[in-house]
């Protein structure tokens, strides 16, 4: 079997398992957990598009995730959970995401990577403060957050599960097309050697901006999925720790692999949930972030390509396809 066959086979098996989870394990705990995993998997893959495919590091990517969650949440709350409210929320969230990413790109993508990372962090924190401010309390319910009503057809847990899964599959397919497109190839060139891409005549700034917009849109959709799955949104969605969690998911799964984000999200969200449960009996597990820190060091030191990247490389070597 070629590595490509392995990849397609694994993805198909994962999809089949995901489809069968409600049948095999019922609705409730496992599906609720997986809905969260789906949202974060998409978020992590959107982040991989930046860090793994373009070589751009953002510490404030949660600004898009949070905007997706908040805008959809606000429209749902203020429309009483109507379908029209949901659709309007999605459209406006995506529009805001495009404008926001273009604005951030225009002021920061021309400067050096480290300053870009700092600017994204600052923008993310600004939205965090805004979302919790009393001035916007009528809109966002400030620090208390909002319980979000869903349309009647989305009330059933099974429907929410399959809708989030379907959206994830569609977005993964789009992302896959994107990274294999001529634009995706140029982005990989930028990651490898920005100066050489420029000397070939490609407008590096324009391509980075495109990557930032697409990545922002995917993170926004992830935020919308999150609010649909959780039916609650608070300032936490803008928190820098969310951006760092997603960075961890991407690195553990495999930077520049796209699918690594799926695995990273499953591992981190799964571990967070398990450790939180165990903390009731063994308080030490309440400090699970230390374990994540150790895991991060181990992965970076011994598996710099992440789990998916390392496995893919091993398969290539095994099948004799490695150069």
């Amino acid at each position: 079997m070629t590595p490509r066959t392995w990849k397609i086979g694994s993805l198909f098996l994962l999809l089949l398992l995901a489809v069968l989870v409600p049948v095999l394990f019922g609705i409730g705990g496992p599906t609720n957990l997986l809905e969260q995993v789906f949202a974060f998997a998409l978020f992590a893959m959107s982040y991989d598009l930046l860090i793994g495919y373009t070589g751009v590091v953002s510490f404030g990517h949660a600004v898009f995730f949070g905007t997706g969650a908040y805008v959809a949440g606000i429209f749902l709350v203020h429309s009483g959970g109507s379908t029209a409210g949901l659709l309007m929320g999605i459209v406006v969230a995506l529009g805001v995401s495009v404008l926001l990413s273009l604005l951030i790109a225009s002021i920061s993508l021309r400067i050096r990577t480290v300053y870009f990372a700092m600017i994204t962090l600052a923008v993310g924190q600004t939205f965090y403060v805004l979302a919790g401010s009393q001035m916007l309390q009528p809109l966002t319910n400030a620090d208390d957050g909002m319980t979000v009503p869903l349309p009647v057809w989305l009330m059933h847990d099974r429907t929410v599960y399959y809708v989030t899964l379907l959206v994830l599959v569609c977005c993964v397919w789009l992302l896959r097309l994107f990274v294999r497109s001529p634009v995706g190839q140029v982005l990989q060139g930028i990651r490898e050697n920005e100066g050489r891409v420029l000397a070939l005549g490609h407008s590096v700034y324009r391509f980075k901006a495109v990557a930032f917009v697409i990545s922002g849109l995917m993170a926004t959709i992830a935020g919308i999925l999150y609010v649909i799955a959780q039916t609650f949104v608070s300032t936490g969605v803008y928190d820098v720790s969310i951006s760092l969690d997603v960075l961890l998911m991407t690195i553990i799964g495999g930077v520049g692999t796209l699918y690594g984000g799926l695995l990273g999200a499953l591992l981190i969200i799964g571990a967070q949930t398990e450790f939180t449960n165990l903390a009731g009996t063994f308080p030490i597990f309440g400090r699970y972030t230390i374990l994540f820190g150790v895991l991060y060091i181990v992965i970076v030191r011994f598996m710099p390509r992440g789990i998916v990247g390392t496995v893919a490389q091993a398969l290539k070597r095994w099948s004799g396809q490695e150069e």
Binding site: L177, R180, S181, V186
Partner: peptide, 15 residues
């Protein structure tokens, strides 16, 4: 690809 314009019409198409 550098000779083919902006490529923005090829966001989701194959090379």
């Amino acid at each position: 690809a550098a000779r083919q314009g902006t490529l923005l019409g090829r966001l989701f198409s194959r090379v």
